[in-house]
Amino acid sequence: MRQLFALIKKENYTFFNGWSLWIIGGSYIFLSTFLNFFMGGFFSLSNAGLYSFFSFQNIVFIFVCPAITMKLWAEERKYGTIEFLLTQPISLSKLVLGKFLSCLCIIGFLLFISFPFWLYCTLNYNMDNLNIITTYFGCFLMGCAFCAIGCMISALSTSSAISYIGTLLALFLISFADFSRLLHLTKEQEDIYIRLQNSLNFDYHYYDFLTGQISLDNVFYFVLLSIVGIWLNIRILEYKKG
């Protein structure tokens, strides 16, 4: 446990004591606000669940999560500090878990800085707070899955830039890719394809949270995706050991 906390502390120390906090935090606030007011129609919607804000969080996270995870393993490998970590009496799974949990602290922090906006709305309008809490939970789970994928991709490269672009691309593909038109499917095949695509798609699982529902399959989906990401991260590091 102590080793895990030390790792989380070290990663967050780097994040909160550098420019990353201002750049990533600032980008998150800018993107969320811009999309909420200019594209989400904050003032025109019946917005009891802050739908205009949360409906774009998936897009915001697609851009922000890779920035959180891009340097996690890529920089350890680039600067040789991975040699230090992997020769210490700590298991690979603990190392990966520690890094992943440090990302979750940052996701939690980002969601926390949107809290004043919710507070303002709650004090001035009649809000459906239960719906909002549910959506926050959905956002956090989505952040977990995105970060797990980001950590995994970061372990593949020594370049933070490549890691960022790779994660962005992977998240974008899993969120929005639709190949049904390219595959020339019959109506029946298309139905099967769409069901398959939806079961793998981030957005499909996230949108249920937007309506205030916590269904087990959606929670399970994000948790499973996080576990798979962490597991693949461990395997990649083991493979890189030779």
């Binding site: 080793q3 030390a6 070290k10 120390y13 600067y79 040789g80 970590l85 020769t87 700590i90």
Partner: peptide, 27 residues
């Protein structure tokens, strides 16, 4: 106890923070 040839230090940390971190990692 291993000291590789190329620096393996976390440059953004102070000496004390780094040694504390190492103590925790080494349990």
């Amino acid at each position: 106890g291993y000291v590789p040839e190329n620096g393996f230090l976390y440059y953004e940390m102070s000496v004390l923070d780094f040694l504390k971190f190492c103590s925790d990692i080494k349990n």
